[in-house]
Nucleic acid binder design. Structure first.
Length: 884
DNA sequence: GGCCTCACG
DNA sequence: ACGTACGTGAGGCCA
């Protein structure tokens, strides 16, 4: 028997939207409803083994119901923006799978579903109607099954209704079901003052009389009196409800059964959609074999070279090319195992290390190829910095890093690999590294002689080459070309230099520090167990919470999703009264220092006695760099014991550290960007920015500002930079929201230009979808469009913070490049070894100390000229601890 | 792999 | 009413 599945589009999309947790792809598109819809659809198709499928959607235009009853609002609630944007997407996805979309002006999707279902049944077809709306139960029939998906705890269960199931659950037949609904009135049209009839009463009446008309004819018998009264006075409303709720079975829908035949859902077009939406589990359904021609067409032009002569020929040819894409392929140990090279649609190669064809040869050839070129942006690659570790290039403007370009164009993504670039800049879908190799890297695959490793490499070279012009165009169009060429590209070299320099660690001292910690930890551990009266895992927030707040019955503060909060701010409040809490806080501090720093850092010391961490350029949303393996940007400093660890960071013999940091750079940027005259004036001469803020805001002479006033002003200044909120400030200062708000208002009264500036940033963010730094760096803020209050408020804070934090990051990058270039230009041996957002640590040879200090201060102060000066504090010392 | 906690600017 | 300050990375626990 032929089988037809009909889906109520909006209803299922709606259900999926609320049932599936928030989900966005890397473009920031919300995708949860589409994802949920597809999962429900695939599940049903599999269960039913259906051969025909169609989806009905409402149109936004008014229907006959609106015309007939001008007050009719329909059942549609205003859709949140996150769902609204998924409706057209859903339709596109369905169309890409060849599934017909049924819509009809003047009718709702229900009417289409009803008409098609009944007529198909009449043609001897078995029908399933899938909807989240129980009103559709009226359509249940011998050969029409109504399927209602229910999502609870992430699991989707589908409830099925044939007429007997409706009868069992509601005690009435499907057609009588309309009458029950009519008596109850649509809750959304409930009219104030009209007594409503509940489900029980309505069901009883219809069970007895069969229809509202028959109820009307027996009005005098109707019980309870309340219902009798309601119907006597407002029978017309019930009649109207019935008419509205009755699904039309004869609407002029244009449905051709054969068009709904499921031929092949897994089309290439659909595959592209799944790829773009990043639906991994759905992609898995697509058989790679079915994924058609486009990629394979390219792959036919991929060549693997394994012989020396072949490689030489290609390098010769590449020399003549106008533009080149390349990628040195590295294995886990950072050894070169191959090179991807592309210089035309038909010139795509993966050269594999083999015999005489060594990694050193490839790196060296690639280096010469670049060095012999003059044309800026004529050689593209994905992620230059890693490759600089095996190909020691001097700073050049010949190379174009596509990953960096991709980052500037959208800093919110977590990867900028070739498939991302292909999708985002070329609108192309290509198999990702993971598609081709699973967990393996291109390097290890190529090394192992896996052909797919070469395919992956070819894609890297090809996409780098192909995406470069488009990326350049996009950078121009977004006003970030200068930022790219003058800041981000040169920065790659500065970061590379810093990583190569590394920072020296006194291993013995570090070990001694760790031993001291471990000794204290062991002692404290015993004291805690004694105090608690039992042993437990102090590191487990779960166990700790149970001990403190259940067994010992301490008053608990906040709760987390999983239990009691044992965070420091909660414990801090309990510490004065309960000695065990102080011990736990101390224990936490010590174990943190030991595991993350003492033991953690030790594991990264290399043979040269130094740590060569990685500084990432494409991670943060604001333009800052980040530091990993290890993170050298969060070495303790605030607490005395932690700060001690900085004593193990030492310069090499004959050198000292010079540490230079910007003072209050973000507030100075605020003064400049907001153009607030008073703030600019204040910061021009200010030694102590927080004190002068206090003086002006509280109308107190500078010398009479109290420590408390200064502390409050400082907190407000922080708040302004973070995107002020009365709540945040009140938490920080432990004052009421009202008091916090009063401070904020006072601040804005004092500096009205700041208020206007911040308001304008939010406005700008809402209008453009992004905000920018002084140098044109963009931060997209999709949250500003959210229908969720929290999300939107977050977006507003981000709109206020990102231009400030981002501008500071830009300035530091400019300074860093200038310092690095100058050290090299003057042939000095001193090197930048760390950057910590507003601070540079320079390993300085003693004979260069005076020159380097001056240079450092000069380059940092004058990285950019603002309407207020940038102040830099520099200190020298024989350890990082002493240089602070 | 998600959550909690905590280190930094 | 919602339930928060902005930006990061790492280690430990636990399902």
């Amino acid at each position: 028997m032929e089988k037809l599945v009909l889906i109520d589009g909006h209803s299922i999309l709606n259900r999926a939207f609320y049932g599936v947790p928030e989900l966005t792809n890397s473009e920031g598109l919300h995708t949860n409803a589409v994802y949920g819809f597809l999962n429900i659809m695939f599940k049903i198709l599999e269960e039913e083994q259906a051969d025909h499928l169609a989806v009905a959607f409402d149109l936004s235009a008014p229907t006959f119901r609106h015309e007939k009853y001008p007050d009719y609002k329909g059942t549609r609630k205003p859709m949140p923006e996150e769902l609204r944007e998924q409706v057209p997407l859903m339709k596109e996805v369905l169309t890409s799978m060849g599934i017909p979309i049924l819509s009809l002006a003047g009718y709702e999707a229900d009417d289409i579903l009803g008409t098609v279902a009944k007529s198909s049944q009449a043609d001897g077809i078995e029908v399933s109607v899938v909807s989240g709306d129980r009103d559709l139960l009226q359509l249940a029939d011998t050969h029409i099954k109504i399927r209602i998906p229910k999502t609870s705890r992430g699991k989707t269960e589908i409830h099925d209704y044939y007429p007997e199931d409706v009868k069992r659950e509601y005690q009435v037949t499907p057609t009588e079901f309309i009458d029950v609904k009519a008596l109850m009135g649509d809750s959304s049209d409930n009219i104030p003052g009209v007594p409503s009839i509940g489900e029980k009463t309505a069901t009883n009446l219809i069970v007895t009389y069969g229809s509202i008309e028959n109820v009307r004819d027996h009005l005098e018998e109707v019980r309870p009196p309340r219902a009798q009264k309601a119907l006597t006075e407002h029978y017309d409303l019930a009649e109207m409800s019935k008419d509205l709720a009755t699904i039309r079975l004869d609407c002029p829908v244009d449905f051709v059964y054969d068009d709904a035949r499921i031929e092949n859902l897994y089309t290439q077009e659909a595959y592209h959609y799944m790829k773009r939406l990043e639906f991994k589990s759905i992609l898995a359904r697509f058989d790679a074999v079915q994924i058609g021609a486009e990629e394979n067409q390219i792959e036919e032009k991929f060549w693997t070279i394994e012989d020396f002569a072949g490689a030489e020929t290609i390098f010769e040819k590449a020399e003549q090319a106008r533009t080149i894409g390349f990628e040195l392929i590295l294995d886990q140990k950072k050894a070169v195992v191959g090179l991807a090279l592309c210089f035309g649609e038909d010139e795509i190669y993966a050269i594999r290390v083999e015999g005489f064809l060594t990694g050193a040869y490839l790196a060296d050839k690639m280096k010469s190829l670049i060095e012999n070129r003059k044309e800026p942006d004529s050689v593209a690659t994905i992620g230059l910095k890693d490759q600089l570790k095996v190909m020691d290039l001097e700073e050049t403007n010949v190379v174009f890093d596509t990953a960096i370009a991709g980052y500037l164009l959208n800093p919110l993504k977590d990867t900028y690999e070739y498939d991302d670039l292909a999708r985002d800049s070329l609108g192309m879908t290509v198999p990702s590294r993971a598609d081709l190799l699973g967990k393996k890297s291109a390097g290890s695959a190529m090394c192992a002689g896996d052909e797919k490793g070469c395919t992956c490499a070819c894609y890297m070279g090809y996409i780098a080459w192909k995406s470069m012009p488009k990326l350049l165009e996009n950078l121009q169009n977004t006003g970030m070309e200068k930022l790219f060429h003058e800041v981000e590209m040169p920065l790659i070299f500065s970061l590379d230099h810093m990583e190569k320099a590394g920072v020296r660690i006194d291993r013995a001292q570090l070990e001694a520090y760790g031993d001291r910690l471990k000794e204290k930890i062991a002692k404290l551990e015993q004291e805690i167990y004694a105090s608690a009266g039992e042993t437990f895992n102090i590191n487990s927030p779960k166990q700790l919470g149970e001990i403190l707040f259940e067994r010992m019955e301490l008053p608990h503060g906040k709760k987390t999703k999983t239990g009691y909060s044992t965070a420091a701010d909660v414990l801090e409040k309990l510490a004065p009264e309960y000695p065990i809490v102080r011990m736990i806080l101390d224990y936490r501090q010590l174990t943190k220092l030991n595991s993350t720093y003492a033991e953690g850092l030790a594991g990264f010391i290399q043979e040269d006695g130094r740590i060569h961490g990685t500084f990432n350029q494409t991670i943060t949303a604001t333009g800052r760099i980040s530091s990993t393996e290890p993170n050298l940007q969060n070495i303790p400093v605030r607490m005395e014991l932690g700060r001690e660890i900085r004593k193990v960071f030492v310069p090499e013999d004959g050198a000292v550290f010079v540490d230079a940091d910007y003072s209050q750079i973000e507030l100075r940027i605020l003064a400049h960007m907001s153009k607030d005259d008073r703030l600019i004036e204040a910061y021009r001469e200010a030694q102590d920015i927080h004190a002068i803020t206090a003086s002006q805001v509280f109308h107190t002479p500078l010398e009479e500002v109290t420590p408390l006033q200064r502390r409050n002003a400082k907190a407000v200044n922080f708040g302004i930079v973070y995107g002020i909120s009365a709540f945040g400030l009140s938490e920080d200062l432990s004052i009421s929201r009202k008091e916090a708000l009063a401070y904020i208002n006072k601040y804005f009264e004092t500096y009205p230009g700041v208020k206007t500036f911040l308001d304008d940033l939010v406005k700008e963010g809402k209008e453009q979808g992004y905000v920018t730094t002084l140098f044109g760096r963009r931060r997209p803020i999709p949250e500003l469009k959210s229908s969720n209050f929290m999300q939107r408020a977050f977006g507003e804070r981000v709109a206020m913070n990102s231009p400030i934090q981002g501008t500071a990051a830009d300035i530091m990058k400019i300074a860093m490049i200038a310092v690095d270039r100058e050290l090299r230009a003057r042939k000095l041996r001193s090197r930048i070894v760390l950057q910590v957002h507003d601070e540079l640590l320079v390993e300085t040879f003693v004979d260069e100390q005076e020159e380097v200090t001056a240079l450092l201060e000069e380059k940092m102060r004058h990285a950019v000229e603002l309407s207020v000066s940038l102040e830099v504090e520099a200190h020298a010392g024989t350890t990082w601890f002493d240089a602070k």
